[in-house]
Design a protein around this nucleic acid. Sequence first.
DNA 1: ATGATTTGTGTCACTTTGCCACAAAAAAAA
DNA 2: TTTTTTTTGTGGCAAAGTGACACAAATCAT
Lengths: 237, 237
Amino acid sequence: MDFKEFIENGEKLYLPNLSVDMVIIAFHQGQIKCLLLQIGDKWLLPGGYILRTESVEDATVRILRERTGLKDPHFKFLSVFGGEDRKFTEEWRQFLENNDIHFTEGCWLNDRFVTLAHYSLVDFEKTQPVLGDIDAAFQWFNMDDLPNMWMDHKDIVLTAKERLKEDIKQEQLTYNLLPNEFTMPQLHQLHEAILGEPLDRSRFQKKMIASGIFERLPKLKKESPGRNPYQYRVKKA
Amino acid sequence: MDFKEFIENGEKLYLPNLSVDMVIIAFHQGQIKCLLLQIGDKWLLPGGYILRTESVEDATVRILRERTGLKDPHFKFLSVFGGEDRKFTEEWRQFLENNDIHFTEGCWLNDRFVTLAHYSLVDFEKTQPVLGDIDAAFQWFNMDDLPNMWMDHKDIVLTAKERLKEDIKQEQLTYNLLPNEFTMPQLHQLHEAILGEPLDRSRFQKKMIASGIFERLPKLKKESPGRNPYQYRVKKA
DNA sequence: ATGATTTGTGTCACTTTGCCACAAAAAAAA
DNA sequence: TTTTTTTTGTGGCAAAGTGACACAAATCAT
């Protein structure tokens, strides 16, 4: 289905006025990044719509897979964004004009949308972003340094950033951001990056090991200076 | 607007395929209860739809006010329920037949609905439930002893029950379930009822006082046996 | 008065947290 | 080769927090 058909017939396939947006988060070079797509001169979150024949959860997984190529991606519900004026009329108009596509005022995409925002933690190395039909580019942006974005999409990213801070105090989910095998210093740096503050190395290590969800691999890994760290991986049931 | 007009013209006023459901929770006689409405011989959560001209949050407050008469009710987002088969066709058919209302197969209410579930903590004494046009009755049900309910509404209530357990460990929000002025034993019993397990009285009291959000009122309150407890209220900014 | 009941608060061992130190390992420098 | 520098693993200890219990104070019933 090309974009023109999508504009014309999308409302038969998808639930109207409802979208799913994804804050796809990765860890690279010591920084927390999120994946954005470019349409026109602005950036927006990867997202999509819910087929009338699929559940919200299925739609979320489908959208994630389409964009990241990952088979079984991590994701978690973030929040509803449901302002009464949440329309993208101006954004669509600009894009359609620039691409010589006929602009229909009453198009379903021009209506108000309530979005179900999710966030997803992915392994930077394993993620191969895929462009949609109309996306000009993708790029990983530092979460502290976001570009011009559509409407409230920046708010959504910032909400995800705050949410992640809360969540990692409770659950162990950050390993989704690392390769299968990782070291404690890596995990430590990751947590510091998420929380934006220094964490005591000693206690961090003890706490992680005490959590019991990781198993130490006897292997060591060789690198530059210093002592070689152990590697760990998540215990399998 | 009567119900017939609501069936026929509702889709012009409201966002389609999207609803708001409320788990309205109160504390009465030592037990956690939630407010349900009766339609036909089954029970369901108070809920409603989102006007095209109002935000999701405004819709939530409006629905809560309509049902409870409270000016400024507490509420919190709970979860999205978005299964692909989430339709109330059978439930509506039964109700409409029993009430001699013409049944339209293609009615917007018969379509699939994604619901945005919220929960609300209210003061039992201050809450004056109001019946909707089509509700046969309302009743406070013990959260552990729910009647036959529409579709997944029981799941929603149970999700709220679990969520409340998590939330009170983090934030102080249970005072919404008590009168403005309350005693520590009352708050203690409330927490025990929510968590379903005994809590040490001494530590509970210290912790609550240490949280700093309550102020002790010098007054005492007289009752049956035992020593008279202090009263507390939430500190005002 | 006496006793039962309820409420407020103290104690004390135990655990968790925050902070620092130091030893072990490995590359880099001398 | 020896020394220095960098990084990682682990231990210790005071301070704060937690859990379980004890006991005193206040009030009603007898």
